[in-house]
Amino acid sequence: MKIEVVCDVKTHLGEGPLWDVEQERLYWIDSTGMNVFRSTADGREVRAWDLPQMIGSLALCKNDRAVVSLQRGFHFLDLRTGDVELIFDPEPDKPNNRLNDGKVDKAGRFIAGSMDTKESGKNAALYRLDPDLTVHKLDDGIIVSNGPCWSPSGDIFYFADSWSGEIWAYDYDLSRGQVSNRRTFARLDTSTGGAADGSTVDAEGFLWNAQVYDGRLIRYAPDGSVDRVVEMPVKKVTSVMFGGPRLDILYVTSMAKRHLPHLPADGAARGSVFAVHGLGVTGLPEHRFAG
């Protein structure tokens, strides 16, 4: 196994790595720096888009367009012009909330949750943006939404409230885009200060989670047991996604900004995008939003 820095743009809060299998390009975001980035698999040809608000996640559409969860709702981002167009704000009455992590299901729906920016109350929720651009609430009572992803068959949905100390699994009705039967999939060891951040599922159905502030990537078996631990060179790792032409590189985002005094400090590599090679597993292509 080898870990290397792919791109060092010192993202304040790097998140949401996304591999585009069609263009063979890596996307990621800087949530609080309000940027979308794109590069080749090895970190060349970097391009950036400036956004008017903080961003929680991005998913690709067709025709050089992306759907993004911004501070104040779902938006389209035109990747040719950089123009941003509001779709819908599901929480106009919650000024301390913003939309956060999200991904697209096998039917082309965008599932994203919100977060309480003060990280103090269960004021956030999980939403589904359908291709017809209607928005539906799936769950609530959440502090910080993170790590949405699905089993390879699409019938199990994984999700975490970062400060719950757990990763949850739901039954997922792909025909209707509904969740049910929430249960604990895995409990984190929070004794070292780690919390569940971004996740992805590999081709074998194992879930990979970035444990922010703890500097570890955990691979969980389908039964929730710990299968593998990868120690990263920085503590504030934030999200993971398989990419590269063979989907065998695990890309890892991180944060450069120390948001609170008690959080761990990192060295010169903080805020970089990392690539983990030689894991012996591959990922699954990400779906495009159908709207």
Results as ranks from 00 to 15, higher is better:
Ile3Glu: 02
Lys257Ile: 13
Lys94Leu: 11
Lys235Gly: 09
Glu91Met: 08
Pro245Leu: 13
Ala196Glu: 11
Asp171Gln: 09
Asp101Glu: 07
Leu99Ser: 05
Phe159Asp: 00
Lys2Met: 09
Leu79Arg: 03
Thr11His: 05
Arg288His: 07
Leu86Arg: 11
Thr40Asn: 10
His259Gly: 08
Val36His: 04
Gln53Trp: 07
Leu60Cys: 08
Lys2Ser: 04
Glu119Trp: 10
Asp214Gly: 15
Gly43Ala: 06
Leu126Lys: 00
Trp163Glu: 04
Val144Ile: 15
Gly283Arg: 10
Ser39Ile: 08
Leu207Lys: 10
Leu284Ala: 02
Glu24Arg: 15
Thr11Glu: 13
Gln211Asp: 13
Arg80Thr: 14
Ile156Cys: 12
Asp89Cys: 01
Val144Ala: 09
Lys118Pro: 02
Val6Asn: 01
Asn123Gln: 14
Pro92Tyr: 06
Ala112Gln: 04
His12Arg: 15
Ser272Asp: 03
Leu126His: 01
Ala256Leu: 11
Gly56His: 05
Val84Arg: 00
Ser199Arg: 04
Ser120Ile: 04
Pro222Asn: 10
Asp130Asn: 15
Ala221Asn: 14
Gly243Met: 12
Ile218Glu: 13
Thr117Glu: 15
Glu15Gln: 08
Gly280Tyr: 09
Thr282Leu: 03
Asp223His: 04
Gly205Pro: 03
Arg80Val: 12
Met241Leu: 05
Tyr251Trp: 09
Gly14Phe: 13
Ala41Met: 09
Thr238Phe: 12
Ala59Gln: 07
Arg182Asn: 05
Pro95Thr: 11
Arg219Thr: 02
Asp139Pro: 04
Ser151Cys: 05
Val6His: 07
Phe206Gly: 11
Phe74Pro: 00
Asp132Ser: 08
Glu91Asn: 10
Ala203Gly: 03
Gly141Thr: 03
Val179Met: 06
Leu58His: 04
Ala169Arg: 13
Ser225Pro: 09
Ser120Asn: 11
Pro233Lys: 05
Phe274Ala: 04
Gly121Gln: 15
Thr190Cys: 12
Pro131Glu: 07
Ile156Met: 07
Asn97Ala: 03
Thr117Leu: 13
Phe76Cys: 01
Arg183Leu: 08
Arg38Trp: 08
Asn63Arg: 14
Ala256Tyr: 13
Lys235Ala: 14
Asp116Lys: 00
Tyr27Gly: 01
Gly165Ala: 01
Thr81Asn: 09
Ser175Leu: 12
Met54Pro: 09
Asp197Gly: 06
Asn96His: 14
Ser191Tyr: 07
Val84Leu: 05
Glu204Asp: 15
Pro131Arg: 06
Arg80Asn: 15
Asp227Trp: 04
Arg187Trp: 02
Leu284Asp: 04
Tyr158Asp: 00
Asp266Ile: 12
Arg182Tyr: 10
Arg258Ser: 12
Ala169Val: 02
Val6Ala: 05
Asp223Lys: 08
Thr81His: 11
Val281Leu: 06
Ala221Arg: 15
Pro285Glu: 02
Ser39Asp: 05
Lys236Ala: 14
Arg216Ser: 12
Ile3Phe: 04
Asp105Leu: 01
Ile87Tyr: 02
Pro131Ser: 00
Ala210Met: 10
Leu133Asp: 07
Val240Pro: 12
Gly243Trp: 14
Ala124Leu: 06
Phe157Leu: 02
Val281Met: 03
Asp116Ile: 00
Asp173Cys: 14
Leu13Tyr: 13
Leu77Asp: 10
Trp49Lys: 05
Asn209Val: 11
